[in-house]
Structures are given as C-alpha cells and as structure tokens.
Design a protein around this nucleic acid. Structure first.
Lengths: 245, 245
DNA sequence: CGAATAACCGACCCTTGAGTCGGTAATCTA
DNA sequence: TAGATTACCGACTCAAGGGTCGGTTATTCG
C-alpha cells in the first residue's frame, strides 16, 4: 500500500526506498506546503542527507508527481467501482460519497496534498485536469439523479456537485484518524481540537451522507432517524444501500 | 472598503498606497501561494520596482497580516451581527450561513487566502487561532439549536459545524463573481469551467442553505420544506438558477 | 573472498528571492 | 520658489535552497 516495495531480502545496502521518500515528502509538503518545504526537510525527516534523496528521486517535483498520482488513482478507483455495477443512480451517488470519505480517511496525507495543489507547474496543472474529470463525473451523476427524480431538481446540478465535493473534501481540514496509525512524531499545531476527529471512518461517512442527503432540519413528525444512514419511509424505492468498506 | 484611503487630494507624489499593495498582494498570494509568490511579482502587478513596495510595507509578512485581518474582521462581523439581535436559534444559524456566503463572495480574495493559511509563522498561527474561535461559535450555535429541537440531534454537533463551514468555505475553490468587478487582467487557469460560477450571490446562498438544511433527497410528497430560506411552494420553482451550458 | 548492488555522504555550484541604501521625481502648501 | 511630503528607482547584500559530483559503506549473490 505504501509502495514501499517487497518485504524482506533486498539486494544492496539497507535503507530507504522511493516509497519512503514519497511518504516523507507527502508529510512534509502537507505540513509546510510544497513551496515552503525544502529538500533538506524531507531528508531530515528520513534521517539522511539531502544529496541521498536524489538517489531515489530525480527532484522535488517527482516526489509531488508520485504523491498526486497516488491520491488521484485512489479517487478515480472510487468512481470506477461505484459506477461499474448496475446500482441505482442514488446508489451510485451515495457510493461515491461513501467511497470518497473512505479514501480520504485512508489516504488522508496524499489527498490533502492533492486538494491544495494550485496549478503552479505542469505537474500541478496535470493533476488539476485529472481532478476536474472527477468533478464532471460527479456532476453527471447528479444530473442523472435529478432526471430520475431521486434527488431534488430545483438546484443547479453543477453547484450541487461542487458543494458535495466541497463538503467531503473539507474533511481534510480537520479529520485526523484514530491514533492507530503510526504517524511517528509530529509537533503539529493543526486545527486540533474537540472530540470530533476521533470519530470512526464509518460514523463519519454516515454523518456526511446524512447531512448531504437529508439536511440538518429535523425530519418531519413520525419519521425518526435511525442510524443506518438515512431514513426513507414513503419516499421512492429502497435506494441508499448504505454500503461501505 | 479597500483601505485605499481617502479619495482625492493627497499630499506628495501620486501613486500607490498601502491598500493597493495589500490588494495586489492578496491577488498574487492566492494565485501563486504565499511561499510561491515573490515580492517582485507583487511589484510587477503594481507596475513599480520591488524596492518601492518596501516604502508602503515593512515586508512580505506585513502584507499577509493585513490581508488576513481584513478577512477575519469581515467574518467576525458576520457572527456579531447574526447573534446580537434576538433572532431564533435557527434564524441565527441561517444568518451565519448566509452572511458567510455573502462575505465569501464580497471578500473572496482575502477569505480565500485566509482559508489556505497553514500556520507556518506566528502571523499565520495567530490567524488560525482567530479562525478557530469562529469554529467554536458556530459549534455552540449548533449545539444550542439541537437542544432547542430545531435541528436534528442525532449528529455530532462538532462534526456538523465542521461540515457546514466546510461546505460554505468550499465556495472559494470554484466560485468566481460575475464579471462586474474589475479584476483587471489575469491569465488564470483556475478551475474555470461550466456555468456554475456565474450564479448570483443571492441564488448561491439559497442553494447552500437548501443543501445544508434540507438535503438533496427529494422532499416527500405533500410534505413541508417550510419556512424562510429554501424554495418552497408545492415542490420546485422559485429559487436557484439551475442554468447550465 | 570478490563482484555486483543499493544506499548514503560532504562539499560544492548557482540561481532566486527578501530586504537595504542612497538617491531621484512628482505633487501640495506656504 | 522653498520646503515638506510621498512615491519611486537601480544597484546592491546576503542567505536559503535545488541540484550536482566524486567518492564511501553496507549487503547479497556466486
């Protein structure tokens, strides 16, 4: 998963490999920003000299490129997986939302980096272009869901698509995974506060879906909101598989 | 509003003033990122020499500080204004959302900059701290609304507050005001696409409120979708441009 | 053991970019 | 016109940071 390559028994002198450099790079880039980060920072994070980093990668930009590829690949897989099966339109929509949340949590560092890219270089512009195709795919899904009558049609689908992605993507601004993952050291002054960030990935996806699909307003009368993401009651079909994984 | 100072008749040689430098700085910073931007870039944007910039400000960081102050002041005003009157809790909540959208649109450049700050310096950390107090105020509003029974109580209020801000703040990622405002030149490769960004600020706030408070799911038959913001009527109509292209 | 392999290092080059300095050019006021 | 005021400029300093180079060290394979 970390591209760290095979397990044991590698040939020459033991040490770091490309994957490790990219991992460190992602961490440093998200902490200090791509332009604010230095190759020395990355080297220091790995405990090696700056010149040694160049043994693994051709330069700063390659680290960024590899990092963005990782994030984009994961997100594209979410869409591919959500739209290949013959799920209903809302099923696909929810699958995309839940899949995106899951990916964000699993690949938090690289996705965070991706979302901060602003197009200052060819590498960054290429990543933005790939990101945009995901926007389009989501927008198309929204449009289709509207014409299917499964989501309200009184809102501009492009704006809706933006808001949905915006809501999901905003997780990178505050969500921090449970202290299961290593993480190593990090002074990190983040936004770190309240309980919030200890929520499990599953609960998180439930909450995101609840807000996006049903809103904050208290559901009318009888219909209570069971946890299993959403209610539904009279409403059309049994969509909303609530799947995950 | 631009801090550009008084209108006519100023003493010495005519030219730019601090406000102009800050305006240019905000534009450059949001385009290239704070670390990626150079004082030469800012000077060039103003059509003066780099050394002249230092006549107006003490350095790069002062430009950033002034820019962040502008954004923070505007956002804090939204909360102050929303919570001073004796409005209902939901009224306050919606007022904050609408006010934030309006501020984002009106002060798009500086707010965009604020949202990208990561705490790499004292200036940035101070701004983050001020931002955090806004998060807290919103979370408290959500908590109160929940105990008042006006919004669903089955969701973690802190997570909800984050998602609400996340949704609103994500506007800076794609919304571009109508071509009324000057803007001057800008090669800008932004995210620029579809019609979306031409939506008026009012419609935009309507859509954001609609999604946040009522969700995407199509409102049940005769059901409500009552009060203030959102569309209403039997089903669709009214609000939102829905345009495309 | 010796060769191949892979990771690592210190010293160095060179560009970029923040900030400084000693002036010069317009404009208003008196 | 003199002086005050405000904006502007070219040439400079200095440090940081991306990248290069010629080696050195630790392991595995034969």
């Amino acid at each position: 998963m970390t591209t760290t390559g095979n397990a044991s028994a590698r040939r020459g002198r033991p040490g770091h490999d490309v994957g490790a450099v990219v991992d460190a790079g992602i961490r440093i880039f998200t902490e200090r920003g791509y332009d604010g980060a230095t190759m020395d920072d990355i080297a220091a994070a790995l405990g090696i000299a700056k010149s040694s980093v160049y043994h693994h990668v051709s330069g700063k930009e390659e680290i960024l490129r590899r990092a963005l590829n990782r994030a984009l690949g994961a997100l594209e897989a979410v869409f591919d997986h959500a739209t290949d099966g013959a799920a209903s339109t809302t099923g696909q929509l929810e699958s995309v939302v839940r899949g995106s949340v899951a990916t964000l949590v699993a690949e938090l560092p690289s996705v965070t980096l991706l979302l901060r890219v602003r197009g200052n270089s060819d590498t960054q512009r290429a990543a933005l272009a790939r990101r945009r195709t995901l926007d389009v795919r989501l927008a198309n899904l929204v449009i289709q869901a509207q014409s299917d009558g499964v989501i309200r049609a009184d809102l501009d689908p492009h704006v809706v698509a933006r808001l949905v992605f915006g809501t999901v993507n905003s997780l990178t601004e505050w969500y921090r995974p449970r202290a299961d993952d290593h993480v190593g050291d990090q002074p990190d002054h983040h936004i770190g506060d309240k309980a919030a960030q200890t929520a499990g990935a599953r609960d998180l996806a439930d909450t995101v879906c609840a807000v996006i699909f049903d809103g904050l307003r208290v559901p009318a009368l009888g219909a209570v909101v069971p946890n299993g993401p959403v209610p539904n009651g009279a409403v059309p079909n049994g969509a909303v598989p609530s799947v995950a994984s």
